[in-house]
Nucleic acid binder design. Structure first.
Lengths: 196, 196, 196, 196
DNA sequence: CATGAATGAGCATTCATTCAT
DNA sequence: AATGAATGAATGCTCATTCAT
């Protein structure tokens, strides 16, 4: 579809705000259209259906999210440093956009199973980034070489995700970014070669 | 309501199966009633409304789940051993009831925010169990004493939860229980005193 | 049915109160049963169905109502005096039982057409009483002899009924019985021989 | 709402017919929609809910009804003549639209108390018209000047209303308009100065 | 491209009535 | 006679999607 036309972005951005403010189940297409300043029918010139708005929203926002993290973690750091950067950037980005945080951590999970599979596909790219860093850590003999990498990357993601979800459910009342250090420690020590 | 009448359990059990097989949004009350072998109206003698079936289902099943884990982790083990038991029991119970696993990991999360808060309340008891074990580990000088316990228990839960969700989304095609060891290692090393 | 058993009256009286306090559409059989202190099923030992409670209620209460009026108007009065007694007794009885007034003037009229026909049958007896007085008035040469008696009795009933309904809808905030004189005057002058 | 769009009238007119033919409680929204030749959902573009169809129907039809009567009674007649015109026009209009007569005299009264209050508000305008004529009659020394005008206008309305209701309940088998004279006589003599 | 009026499938819940005890 | 748990039919309303303009 016309992913670069201005209305495409207008609709995506309207959707984030509407969903964050009204919740997933009260975010009718007509409400999103109104917020975006277009007619209901116009939505369907840019998106196949309502679910497509959500998938596109996630791909768009998460695409930028992951790109940013990829970019931040490509410098000449050690795997340990990269991991810290990863966690920090993850937290930083969601802390910077409260609406987006609500949508990704709470509202979008209320979508149906099918949509969640599509969302999971988007996340694969992120898991790959994590995987690479873990791999580097193993090469650097920083991490144990008998790790179940497939599992490890999930666990790392699970920790960060749970930390962010909690912060959102606690209405973002504490500082999320301050927790990056502790999460990082648990991961690094948890994977470390020296352990044992 | 009449939580000990046989029909109460019949309906809860029917709901688990129907939701697991049809997905949350295709699980009409009439479908649950039919599976339970009662009339539609009978549902409302035992539950306030449809959402109440879900809340009750979660409280009921998770209540047993947590009780089992509490029971398994109260013997005279070290904190390290208890943690292994915790992860193993967590995985074991969900692996043993595929329907329940689908419901808790995927379908129940599609419910609205309000319900999710109620679900979170049930989970608090589980987080307390984890917390106690972490505390013991600190007492035993097994774990660092400068841990952010509130965060740590979330991270531990997040790891297990993500591992199970992945297993469910991969259609339970691999053995979940075999991952308990690796998850346990990551946690124990991650929290360990000797690290550093 | 068992019209003289105490439970019959219990249920009728409970129905009047429940309907007056909750309105016709919020007066479920179970609510009436509870107020009457009997089980839901017991209602059906004394009444064919819910509509039968209402018809019986009306027959019962209106029976007494009409009897009282018949009794009050049989003394050796002139037709004019009898008419005053009629209006006064009509207003008096409804003013004396606020619950009944609400039920007959507002709530029972929300019933379906079929029930209203049955109610109308009960009223025929009342119309006959009015008719007799009008007839006497004509005999006494007090009223014109070319009156359409069928119509006149309806109009008299219509006036009283409207006066009471208004009083009920104004939440019975003024004194209904004081209006009897004025209503009586309008009727008597309206029917009078001397007019013309 | 869009009160001048053709579909608004279509739906109102369909509602009158459907309600008259099926009764209030058997007049499902879908039945009205079908008769009006629109989709069920279209109803809700023009009316807030089912009750709003009824209120609007009454306001619409009674608005015209009252306007017609106001118009007919503004010529240079005496109060006595105006009263006759009023009664005649009242009967004439309802006799001319049997469906509407059934709806206003029987079906609409089955609605809940709340709706009846709204209906009563519409009738206030009609009562004011009656009131003005009575007042004129008093000025003209045709009627007694000690009349309780508030009550009198109710009684006049009560008579006409009861006459029409009876005619409807007798399945409109006799000629309603012929009764106008008699009703008029009763009113005029009833209020007359010469009486007494 | 854009509009927005119109569509119509889909479903939780109530409550009068029954009947085994 | 009395109970009250169980029944199951019946319906107003929402909202994603379409399509004539």
């Amino acid at each position: 579809m016309n992913k670069n036309k201005p209305k495409y972005k207008q609709i995506i951005d309207a959707a984030v705000v509407v969903i964050a403010e009204n919740g997933y189940h009260s975010s009718q297409v007509s409400k999103i259209a109104k917020k975006a300043g277009v007619a209901d029918g116009t939505i369907y010139l840019y998106f196949k259906n309502k679910e497509d708005i959500l998938v596109s929203l996630f791909q768009d926002k998460m695409g930028q999210f992951i790109e940013k993290i990829e970019h931040e973690t490509t410098s000449g750091q050690s795997a340990e440093e990269k991991l810290l950067t990863l966690v920090e950037t993850h937290f930083e980005q969601l802390a910077a956009d409260h609406h987006l945080a609500i949508v990704t951590q709470l509202e979008l999970r209320q979508s149906n199973k099918e949509l969640r599979y599509k969302i999971n596909n988007v996340l694969k790219k992120y898991l790959a980034v994590i995987d690479n860093i873990v791999d580097e850590g193993i090469q650097e003999k920083l991490f144990r070489n008998n790790l179940n990498r497939r599992l490890v990357r999930q666990l790392i993601f699970g920790m960060m995700d749970e930390a962010v979800t909690n912060w959102v459910m606690k209405e973002q009342k504490y500082n999320l970014e301050e927790q990056a250090q502790d999460v990082h420690s648990l991961i690094v020590y948890g994977l470390a070669e020296s352990s044992k």
